[in-house]
Design a protein around this nucleic acid. Structure first.
Length: 271
DNA sequence: CCCAAGACCTGGCGGC
DNA sequence: TGCCGCCAGGTCTTGG
């Protein structure tokens, strides 16, 4: 489900509702997520105060008084704020209960998500250490992408999906950004010149910025922290629109597979 | 190091 | 209606 705009939408929604609260206890119903949940470590959070919630790529970082909770929503994860307790439904694997009776509840049918408690700086953790720049940072620009892509023969869309290149992009926004930049997603990353990467860097920011303003993209099940869908779906230009007219030239949008995943593009507008 | 493919899961949908 | 195969917003691991 969630790429940067969705994760950031969740973050902005739940921070004002939970920031400053103290943890009463954690409830783990299902341990087998991407990695097994460590109940003992998580129990350390009891009594700790939630100081802040930040984001790195698609990860949410919960800053507690003495440690960090890392949360990744995988493909199907969602996080929901509940003002008061409510019986769990199917796939509600994990709750953070606060002392005022409210809670944050993680649901994740496919269990590709991740929950990890860290006592040290999360940014040096192996999962985050090699992450590329945030899309809205100055460091993420055309020259950077150009440099990163030299000598690479993999398709440019694969380069962008790699979190070591840019942190936070996923399949939807890679397809949309490449359309906005007029670049064929299958094109070898190393064969694209500087000026086209400059256009791509701008396109990435533009697409993510608009998605963020719309509260993310709901294809089937994305919901923000309080249960609202995102409205960027109606602005998607190519993603999921195989056979429909290209919004720029009217030619039919192509949907095919590239490296085991769907790509959508316009043959006429993207070279 | 680079790259491709397989693995991990469940649910929803289209086709028969 | 029921079953089957395929597809899904992610990313880690393995092997050439």
């Amino acid at each position: 489900m969630p790429e940067l705009p969705e994760v950031e939408t969740i973050r902005r929604g739940i921070l004002p509702l939970t920031g400053g609260k103290k943890v009463e206890r954690l409830i783990v119903r299902v341990h087998a997520l991407r990695y097994p949940l460590d109940g003992l470590k998580l129990a350390c959070l009891r009594g700790q105060r939630l100081e802040d919630i930040t984001r790195r790529g698609k990860y949410l970082l919960f800053h507690f008084s003495r440690g960090w909770l890392l949360l990744h929503l995988g493909m199907s994860g969602s996080l929901r704020y509940l003002p008061e307790s409510r019986p769990p439904a199917a796939h509600d694997h994990f709750d953070i209960r606060f002392q005022d009776g409210s809670c944050l509840r993680l649901r994740d049918p496919r269990r590709f998500g991740l929950v990890l408690f860290l006592e040290q700086d999360p940014f040096t953790h192996p999962l985050l250490k090699a992450f590329g720049p945030e899309p809205f940072s100055e460091e993420m620009n055309g020259a950077y992408l150009h440099r990163r892509s030299r000598g690479k023969r993999l398709p440019v869309k694969e380069l962008l999906l790699d979190q070591k290149t840019v942190a936070g992009l996923g399949n939807i926004y890679v397809n949309e950004a490449l359309f906005a930049a007029g670049i064929d997603p299958r094109k070898a990353a190393g064969s694209i010149g500087l000026s086209r990467y400059q256009r791509l860097a701008a396109a990435i920011r533009e697409v993510l910025g608009r998605a963020l303003a719309a509260g993310g993209t709901t294809l089937r099940d994305f919901r923000d922290g309080v249960g609202n869908p995102g409205y960027f779906s109606v602005q998607l230009q190519v993603y999921g629109r195989a056979g429909m007219p290209c919004p720029r030239c009217g030619a039919s949008v192509v949907g095919e597979r590239c490296h085991q995943r769907s790509i959508y593009f316009c043959r006429r507008c993207q070279k």
